[in-house]
C-alpha cells in the first residue's frame, strides 16, 4: 500500500505538470482527490491494515494528499493569473475611438439670462410678477403718467389691436397692475420679466423683445437705494469689479430718472468699439416712481416712495456673450443655440 501511495504520488506529480487550464486542474482534482478519486480508492484498503501500520499509512496518505493539494493550489494560481493576463490582453480596446456623447439640450440664451436676473433679484427679496402681453392702453400708458398725446408715446411706437388695446410696449404696466392688486400693503417689491413689442425692425431692433422691470415701493425708499440695488445687480451679473454710472434722463413714470451705464465689460472702461470709446455701456433705465403713478396705483406719495427700473434682456445677453447681431437671437439656428 505504501508502494501504491508512492506510485500514485509519482504519477500524479508528473501528470499535474501537464495541466494547462483550470479545466485540466479540475479534472485532475477529481481524478485523484475526488470522492471516487484514485487516492480515495487506495484508502479504501486501509481497513485491511494492521493496527501498527494504519497510522503510518494514514500519515503517508495525508502527506500525499496535502502535497497534491498544495501543488494543485499553486498551479491554480499560476494558471488563473495567466488566464487573466490572456483575457485582459485580448480585451484591449482602442481608447482613441470617439466617445458616444449623449445629446445635450440647451436653454435659449434669453431664457438663461432672464433666469439669472430673476435669481439675483430674488436674492435681494424681490418676487416675480407677470402680466398680459396684450394690454389695455390704460395700464400701458395712462397709469404710467403717459396720457394720450404725450410726446413720450413717440418713444415707443406701438402695435395696436384696437384704439384701447395694444401689445404692451414695456413690462411697466405690471407695475400699475401690481399696485392695484396690492394696495395698501407694503412693501411692493417685484421684478417682471416678459415679452414686449415695438414697431421697429432693423439691425438693432426686434419687433418683439424681452424686458425685466423692477419696482420697490415702501416707506422711505431713496434714490440712493436705487443706486445700491443696481450696483449689486451689475456686480452679480457682470463681475465683482463692475462700476455703474447714473445719468439724468427722462421717463414719464419716474422722477428723478436715470439711465444706468456699467463700465464696459470688453475694455474695462478703457474705451473700445463696443462702448463707442466712452468706457461705458448703457444697460437700463430707472428712477424714483413718479408721484402721479403712485397716486393712480392707490398709494399716497407723501407717505411712501419707490424706485423702478427696466432693462432690455437682449442687450444684456448680447453683452454677456459677445453677440454682435441681435437677429441671431430669433433665428434659432441650432448651431448658434448649441453654444449656450
Amino acid at each position: 500500500m505504501r508502494e501504491q501511495l508512492h506510485l500514485l504520488k509519482e504519477k500524479a506529480e508528473k501528470e499535474i505538470l501537464q495541466c494547462t487550464s483550470l479545466n485540466d486542474l479540475n479534472d485532475f482534482r477529481i481524478k485523484y482527490l475526488g470522492k471516487k478519486g484514485e487516492l480515495t480508492q487506495i484508502l479504501r484498503g486501509m481497513g485491511k491494515l494492521s493496527a501498527e501500520e494504519r497510522p503510518l499509512i494514514g500519515q503517508l496518505a495525508n502527506e500525499v494528499r496535502d502535497s497534491l493539494e498544495s501543488k494543485l493550489q499553486e498551479l491554480t494560481e499560476v494558471i488563473k493569473k495567466k488566464e487573466l493576463e490572456r483575457s485582459l490582453s485580448a480585451e484591449k480596446i482602442d481608447i482613441t475611438l470617439p466617445g458616444i456623447r449623449p445629446e445635450l439640450g440647451r436653454q435659449h440664451p434669453l431664457s438663461i439670462v432672464i433666469e439669472e436676473i430673476e435669481e439675483i433679484f430674488m436674492g435681494m427679496g424681490f418676487t416675480i410678477e407677470e402680466g398680459p402681453e396684450i394690454e389695455l392702453d390704460y395700464y400701458n400708458f395712462e397709469a404710467l403718467n403717459i396720457p394720450k398725446d404725450h410726446p413720450a408715446r413717440e418713444m415707443q411706437d406701438s402695435f395696436y389691436i384696437s384704439p384701447e388695446v395694444l401689445l404692451r410696449t414695456h413690462t411697466s404696466p405690471v407695475q400699475a397692475r401690481t399696485m392695484e392688486k396690492m394696495r395698501p400693503q407694503l412693501p411692493v417689491k417685484i421684478i417682471v420679466p416678459g415679452k414686449v413689442y415695438r414697431r421697429d425692425d432693423d439691425a438693432t431692433h426686434s419687433p418683439m423683445f424681452h424686458q425685466v422691470e423692477g419696482l420697490l415701493i415702501d416707506k422711505n425708499v431713496r434714490f440712493s437705494d436705487l443706486k445700491g440695488v443696481l450696483l449689486n445687480f451689475a456686480r452679480q451679473m457682470f463681475g465683482a469689479n463692475q462700476k455703474i454710472r447714473l445719468r439724468p434722463s427722462f421717463f414719464p413714470f419716474t422722477e428723478p430718472s436715470a439711465e444706468v451705464d456699467i463700465s464696459c465689460i470688453m475694455c474695462k472702461g478703457a474705451g473700445c468699439r463696443t462702448c463707442g470709446h466712452t468706457g461705458w455701456l448703457e444697460i437700463l433705465g430707472s428712477g424714483m416712481v413718479h408721484p402721479r403713478v403712485l397716486e393712480m396705483g392707490g398709494y399716497n406719495p407723501e407717505e411712501v416712495s419707490g424706485f423702478a427700473f427696466g432693462m432690455g434682456v437682449e442687450r444684456i445677453t448680447m453683452l454677456k456673450y459677445g453677440i454682435d447681431d441681435l437677429r441671431l437671437l430669433f433665428e434659432n439656428d441650432v448651431r448658434f443655440l448649441r453654444q449656450f
Binding site: 424681490f126 418676487t127 407677470e130 425708499v221 443706486k227 440695488v229 449689486n232
Partner: peptide, 22 residues
C-alpha cells in the same frame, strides 16, 4: 448723480421666491 451716496433699502425684509406656477 455721482455724488449721491450708494445705500441699500432699509425697509421690511422680504422673501424672494417663485410662485407654484413659476
Amino acid at each position: 448723480y455721482e455724488k449721491i451716496p450708494t445705500t441699500l433699502p432699509e425697509g421690511t425684509t422680504t422673501q424672494g421666491m417663485r410662485t407654484a406656477e413659476q
